[in-house]
Write a protein that binds this DNA or RNA. Structure first.
Lengths: 326, 326
DNA sequence: CAGCTCGCTGAAAACGATTTAAAATCGCAG
DNA sequence: CTGCGATTTTAAATCGTTTTCAGCGAGCTG
């Protein structure tokens, strides 16, 4: 593959001049510029970004760590992250932590070794100290890592209130919330807070069952519902699920158990990702997170930090999508 | 961030010695090795992979270009690709072509500039010449690019035969196939070949409607079915769809049109990705591609090429998953 | 005409690693 | 004490860029 020296030789100038031409720095005569551009085209010269990155200490690579690449939420999120990063000339190195702390630590080191310019953390298997040590601009999705690391999230509390109030408005009297794991610094847990407080405020009986963070397969979710949720299910007439996959699984489970939905049991989910939008039996009632805007904001905040603009937290508004399950 | 010189200084040796220690090359006394390892730990030294890559001309980065990152098939495929690449110490740079030829060309150049070690092509917006020029090891999913570029695919022909025969066995007499775009070198089109030939062999009336490659949203698919398929739909009692998303959309469409499935119309899909596995209303009858094995093989063939092992094409067996739609 | 600025160009020093080739050290036999 | 192979270490070149600094005419000013 041709390098800058080959171009210089072919154009009959020095490498400095070639470099300056490509980067539009300083004075270059029309004449030499033309010669150089011809040489570049003729040799199909592709500037070596590795050499560039070495000198400039700027790789234009962003690391993205997610718990599960094939989960519809993260697939969609990465889709948008990639698009916005690409617009600003950044590339993304995706890492699949599988929620394994060991693997996540390895990825962190790997990204440091590759001198990624920044890091988007969507997986949260390690304690906050591990991320603070990374010495790289970071943004976090849905978790408060430290005051100097901006986070992006949907307005989980408001979403929780909306979901709960919706169930109450639909005449539910005994409510269940299936949450994610209630680790203190995960912002998704504001949904449970909102649920609890809203039920209290309206004097509604409630219960919270703590689930796992990301359950990948239908069977995982099914077993969870069968073992943890089913024994209590008939005590409730409304369930707020912390994600759409579990909401759908619950719908399937309840249907098979001859519980009529929405008449006997109403279900609200959370996310409204591709899977939910595709789904028509049932059309889930759910709280929509603006995944596109979240992706864009994560990117923007990170690149702002990298390029020395100050960055701040960002919380997005959510929206109730009323379907057929409530 | 500490570099190799800092380590050398701290350990009181030369950089050469540090380098040799890390790479286990040549003689190093127990004593100096220990001193160096201590210095590395103390400084939290992370070797600069960019500098390494520059010298070794080996970046350990693989480019992966897909048409749509958030499509369940590709999300799952990338999931596996990442896992296997990571096992062999490679990283992946994901690119979302959106099936835009211009964008795909840009990504190709970008990956060349970043000196990716190889390329996994799952998007096929350009003519084959564009890929031949890339001068980088490539593997292709589901497309024959040239005899020197290995491809990986499921046994599309056999899948097509299985699907068609299954419909015939279920007593269908007039069959429809909704294909992807019938570009000659896409291996997915063997499904249509198989459909055509199997129908002919059994003396069955058939028709093929050509669809788009990847339709992202339910609405896109819905409109396609409404406009292109619906006018003919009642002529048929069995449909073989070239992917599960279109199969599901057709199911929804037909149900709303009061066509009873499977009694009046039987539907077979293709893929069996996460979306399909999650889906319970209906449980689709479909042809399963082994996405995990495809991902693994793509990776393995590419890395073999990079590391100078010869590589060959690979076609995976498929499997009929019988659901409730036939 | 000395001195300055403009416009243009190039040589050389980085960036942080690896590798080659050569030098230093050691132990030990002659 | 010398010579020599076996160890162990190092200086210097290299990878492909960018940047700093300096040089050199030409034209202008005073």
């Amino acid at each position: 593959m041709a390098n800058i020296k080959d171009v210089a030789k072919k154009a009959g100038v020095s490498v400095t001049t070639v470099s300056r031409t490509m980067n539009n720095r300083g004075y270059i005569s029309k004449d030499t510029r033309k010669k150089i551009e011809e040489a570049i085209k003729e040799l199909d010269y592709q500037p070596n970004q590795i050499a560039r990155a070495l000198f400039k200490k700027h790789s234009y690579v962003l690391g993205v760590i997610v718990p599960d690449l094939s989960h519809p939420f993260f697939a969609e999120l990465i889709n948008f992250i990639e698009a916005f990063a690409s617009d600003r000339n950044y590339k993304i190195l995706v890492c699949n932590s599988l929620q394994d702390a060991e693997k996540e630590k390895e990825y962190l080191d790997m990204l440091r070794q590759h001198r990624a310019d920044g890091l988007i953390m969507c997986s949260h298997s390690l304690n906050v100290d591990a991320y603070r040590k990374v010495q790289m601009p970071i943004v976090s999705f849905d978790r408060i890592i430290s005051s100097s690391i901006p986070y992006v999230a949907s307005d989980n509390y408001r979403g929780g209130v909306m979901a709960t109030k919706h169930l109450i408005n639909k005449n539910c009297h005994r409510l269940l919330h299936i949450s994610g794991p209630l680790t203190s610094d995960l912002l998704a847990n504001r949904r449970a807070d909102a649920f609890r407080e809203t039920c209290a405020k309206f004097g509604i009986d409630y219960k919270i069952i703590e689930g796992a963070y990301v359950k990948a397969t239908f069977e995982d979710n099914w077993n969870f519902i069968k073992n943890e949720v089913a024994p209590h299910l008939r005590e409730f007439d409304g369930v707020f699920c912390s994600n759409d996959i579990i909401a759908y699984t619950l719908y399937v489970f309840a249907s098979k158990a001859k519980i009529r939905i929405p008449e006997q049991l109403k279900i609200v989910g959370y996310d409204y990702h591709n899977f939910t939008r595709m789904l028509k039996y049932p059309i889930l009632t759910t709280i929509k997170q603006p995944i596109d805007q979240i992706g864009k904001k994560l990117c923007a905040l990170l690149i702002d930090q990298i390029e020395n603009v100050s960055a701040d937290n960002y919380v997005f508004d959510v929206q109730l999508i009323e379907g057929e399950t409530t």
